[in-house]
Amino acid sequence: MPIPPSVIGTSGPPVTMTVERGRLRLFAKATGQTDPVYVDLDAARAGGHPDLPVPPTFLYGIDLEVPDPFEWITSLGVDLNTVLHATQTFTYHRQAYAGDELTAHSTIADVYTKKGGALEFVERRTRITRGETPIADLAQTVVIRVTGGEERGGEA
């Protein structure tokens, strides 16, 4: 069943996360980061930063700090296993640092189909703020492979 265009413009509740140094260090470890500015407070301060900088793509995760982070897409009747990330953009306004309390405000910006309805796309925009200060604007597109009502085989 196609996603109704009426969802365009709908917003989820804002999500707030205090960025912890330990979490940034885990992100650095996972991404093989070798620049000490991102893990070592002394190196960060020597580089002119007040604390560990939040790396460019970490902001994608602010929105995920809720018990059911994919509810925005599954609540549209979509099976998460059919969803792929298609595009992601970040527009940066201010650098964020460990200790910042960041809030994500997300809205569904568009819904459309391609290939005669075989692929559905959902665009979602997320504004990240620190208090009233804009930090970044994110836009993501996900693509959903529509199975055409075919029963999914398997062992489930």
């Binding site: 992100f27 790396p55 460019p56 793509t57 970490f58 994608y60 970040f90």
Partner: peptide, 29 residues
């Protein structure tokens, strides 16, 4: 995760330019 590869690209960028000078960063998976 697609975002893991995007994070690697982020490393490529911040290895060669100050992150605070980054204005836009976008990828297609």
């Amino acid at each position: 995760h697609g975002m893991l590869s995007m994070a690697y690209l982020g490393r490529l960028l911040t290895d060669h330019a100050p992150q605070a000078a980054l204005r836009e960063f976008g990828t297609r998976f």
